[in-house]
Design a protein around this nucleic acid. Structure first.
Length: 286
DNA sequence: CTGGATGCCTGGGAGC
DNA sequence: TGCTCCCAGGCATCCA
C-alpha cells in the first residue's frame, strides 16, 4: 500500500508524538508480525520462517523502557531508533498502519505501545503483508538497509543510470526494484514515467542520459508533491493521526485507464506489466 | 538475466 | 440479500 510519500507522512506524524518519549508499555498481539534476533531469516512478511518461537520476544524487543531519539526512513521503511541504538524497523506492506491514539478495540491490531505521556500507538495491518524487525544496534540497521538503493526522494540521475542503465528489463520494473532506488511503488512509478514521457515497457538500457535526467527529476518531483499532499489515499491509507491524504487528486495516469490523457486528450492505455496494473499514454510516452 | 505465474492475507466492489 | 469472482498500494520464490 504505502509508498514513499505515505511512509514519510507517517514518519513525520510519529516523529511528532514519539520523539523524546519513553515507551513504558509494549504488547505484541500477534507473534509472527515481529522478527527478533535469532528468528529464522525473514526479510519480508511473506518469506518462509513460520517457526518463530514466542519465548524469544522480550519487552526490549519492542523498545519497552527505552526512549525514542530518532525516526528514520529509507524507501518505504521506517526505523524507530532508541537511545541505546536498538531499533524497530517497520515495513507497512499493503495495508499496514502506524497510528497514534488509535481507536480502541480496532480490528487487526498486532502491536500496541504506551508512552510516558499517556499516548498510545498501534501497528495494525489487515492483510499482514507488513512486518516489524527488532534490531539490536545501529550497525545492524545499516546492514539491514544495505540492500536498498538510494532513497527515491533524493535520487540522482547518475545513480539511477549506474544501477539500472545496463539492464534490458522494462524501465518500470527497474523503478519498482528497491535495490535500484528505494521508495517507488506502482502508483508513483506510473506517475513518474508519465511525467518523464517514457513508456513503462521501454528497456532501461535504451534510455539516453537525457531520459535519465528527466526520469530522476520526475521521480523526485512526483514524490515531493505527494508528500506535500500527505500521501495518496485510495482506500486504506491513513496517516499517524488516522487522516487520509489528498495526493490521489494529483494522479494523472494511475487509476485513469480508458480516460483521456490530461496532456493530449487521447485515451490512456491500461495493461498488465509484471503482474501490476500499468496505465500510460501511447501518444505522450515513448 | 528476464518475465511470468503463484502465494502470502483480508476486504471491498462488481456482477449475477 | 447473498453468493462468486476479481481486484488492490508489497514482496518472495520457483520456473521457463
Amino acid at each position: 500500500m504505502p509508498e514513499l510519500p505515505e511512509v514519510e507522512t507517517v514518519r513525520r506524524g510519529f516523529e511528532r508524538v514519539l520523539l523524546g518519549r519513553r515507551i513504558v508499555d509494549a504488547r505484541l498481539l500477534r507473534r509472527d508480525v515481529l522478527s527478533v534476533p535469532g528468528d529464522p531469516v525473514r526479510r519480508f512478511a511473506t518469506s518462509t520462517g513460520r517457526s518463530v518461537r514466542p519465548e524469544r520476544v522480550r519487552p526490549a524487543h519492542l523498545l519497552r523502557g527505552l526512549t525514542v531519539v530518532e525516526l528514520r526512513r529509507r524507501g518505504k521503511q521506517i526505523a524507530l531508533v532508541a537511545s541505546n541504538g536498538s531499533s524497530i524497523v517497520v515495513h507497512l506492506g499493503m495495508t499496514g498502519q502506524l497510528l497514534a491514539d488509535p481507536v480502541l478495540g480496532g480490528s487487526h491490531t498486532h502491536v500496541l505501545w504506551g508512552l510516558d505521556d499517556g499516548t498510545r500507538l498501534a501497528f495494525r495491518d489487515p492483510r499482514r503483508f507488513g512486518h516489524l524487525w527488532s534490531l539490536p544496534d545501529l550497525a545492524t540497521l545499516e546492514r539491514f538497509w544495505s540492500t536498498l538503493g538510494p532513497d527515491a526522494l533524493t535520487i540522482s540521475a547518475s545513480d539511477m543510470r549506474r544501477r539500472a542503465g545496463d539492464s534490458r528489463r522494462a524501465i518500470k520494473a527497474a523503478l519498482l526494484d528497491q535495490s535500484v532506488l528505494a521508495g517507488v511503488g506502482n502508483i508513483y512509478a506510473d506517475e513518474a514515467l508519465f511525467a518523464a514521457g517514457i513508456r513503462p515497457s521501454r528497456k532501461a538500457s535504451t534510455l539516453t542520459v537525457r531520459h535519465w535526467d528527466l526520469l530522476a527529476e520526475a521521480v523526485r518531483g512526483i514524490l515531493a508533491a505527494a508528500i506535500s499532499a500527505r500521501g495518496s489515499t485510495l482506500r486504506d491509507y491513513r496517516d499517524a493521526a488516522g487522516r487520509p491524504g489528498t495526493a490521489q487528486l494529483l494522479h494523472r495516469v494511475y487509476g485513469r485507464g480508458g480516460e483521456p490523457c490530461v496532456t493530449c486528450g487521447k485515451t490512456l492505455t491500461c495493461v498488465t506489466q509484471g503482474q501490476r496494473t500499468t496505465v500510460f499514454c501511447r501518444h505522450c510516452q515513448r
